[in-house]
Simulated assay, not measured.
Amino acid sequence: MSTARVSASLHSLPHALHSFQEVVTGLEDRMPAVFLDYDGTLTPIADHPDLAELSEPVRDTLRRLARLSWTGIISGRDLDNIRGLVQVDGLIYAGSHGFDLLIPGHGRIEPHPPSPVLDRVEQELRTLLQAFPGVHLERKRHSLAVHYRQALPRDLDAVQAGVERVLALHQGLRHFGGKKVIEIQPNLEWDKGQALLYILDLLPAWKGRGAPIYIGDDTTDEHAFAVLPLPGAGICVSEEERTTRAAYRLNTPREVHLFLEKLLRWLEGNGPSG
């Protein structure tokens, strides 16, 4: 069962490392599951998506964690791309904000088919964005992403307006902002939160026994924080003040790794036997 989460000031939330015992209280005698975003959570935000490489220590931590709990990556990246970056077998992978899933025991699942409109919009956006240095259009199976982290400041309004003009000519798509990115995807009732609930429903013996932790840094992760079943813990990763529906905070990807290592030790020593 899920519950609506109230938005709060990030800096008013307890720090997940300092309040670790409180975080894991909900895991006692329950089956844990840990879900994480990638960019800005497991790795620092990079100037270009191709530069956000996972460190080997973090990869090893994920590998060990997956032996003790269900562990998943829920990313805006394309499914094949995020799998290639993480390179850990046995994880649950959700690409394109949950439109494309790979779940051990279930294989690859697409809850909704790719939208044919994306092909036409991609062509039009590539033509439009050629005029703006530093703007990168990323095509994914279920979505598009306009990255403008390296764009000239004077071009930002024109990029936003141009994207909106193109999308106004096509039906069935929506767009929303992230960290220096405009995400474009099918206009459906589907997001990271709905994908999380879908995945949890497929996990064996989950209902009534599971307790998920979700860690993410971006506005798209708020959908997951909002629907986390109780007992569950949402952890927002950011040093900047904002409102969030998470219950705890961490400042940086480095602190995320420290938290995962601490959780791993707890699962090895005092965690539930399953």
Rank of each mutant, 00 (worst) to 15 (best):
L196K: 03
L196Q: 05
L196M: 13
L196G: 06
L196S: 09
L197H: 01
L197E: 11
L197G: 00
L197C: 05
Y198K: 11
Y198F: 15
I199M: 04
I199S: 02
I199P: 01
I199G: 02
L200N: 07
L200H: 05
D201Q: 15
D201R: 14
L202I: 05
L202H: 14
L203P: 06
L203N: 07
L203S: 08
P204F: 10
P204W: 09
P204S: 09
P204M: 10
P204Q: 09
P204G: 09
A205P: 00
A205V: 06
A205F: 13
A205E: 15
A205R: 14
A205C: 06
A205L: 13
W206N: 08
W206R: 04
W206E: 08
W206V: 02
W206P: 04
W206A: 07
K207G: 00
K207L: 14
G208D: 02
R209Q: 14
R209N: 14
G210L: 01
G210E: 03
G210M: 02
G210V: 02
G210P: 02
G210F: 02
A211V: 11
A211F: 11
P212R: 11
P212M: 13
P212H: 13
I213Y: 06
I213H: 05
I213D: 06
I213T: 05
I213K: 02
I215C: 12
I215T: 12
I215P: 08
G216M: 13
G216T: 12
D217C: 01
D217E: 03
D217Q: 01
D218E: 15
D218L: 15
D218F: 15
T219F: 13
T219A: 14
T219C: 07
T219L: 15
T220P: 08
T220G: 07
T220Y: 09
D221W: 11
D221A: 10
E222F: 01
E222Q: 12
E222M: 00
E222C: 01
H223K: 08
H223G: 00
H223M: 04
A224L: 10
A224Y: 05
A224V: 07
A224K: 08
A224E: 10
F225M: 10
A226I: 00
A226M: 10
A226S: 14
A226Y: 10
V227Q: 11
V227A: 12
V227T: 13
L228K: 05
P229G: 03
P229Y: 04
P229A: 06
P229E: 05
P229T: 04
P229K: 03
P229N: 05
L230Y: 05
L230F: 06
L230C: 00
L230V: 13
L230A: 15
P231G: 06
P231C: 07
P231I: 03
P231D: 10
G232Y: 07
A233L: 06
A233M: 13
G234V: 04
G234N: 03
G234D: 08
G234W: 03
I235Q: 07
I235P: 06
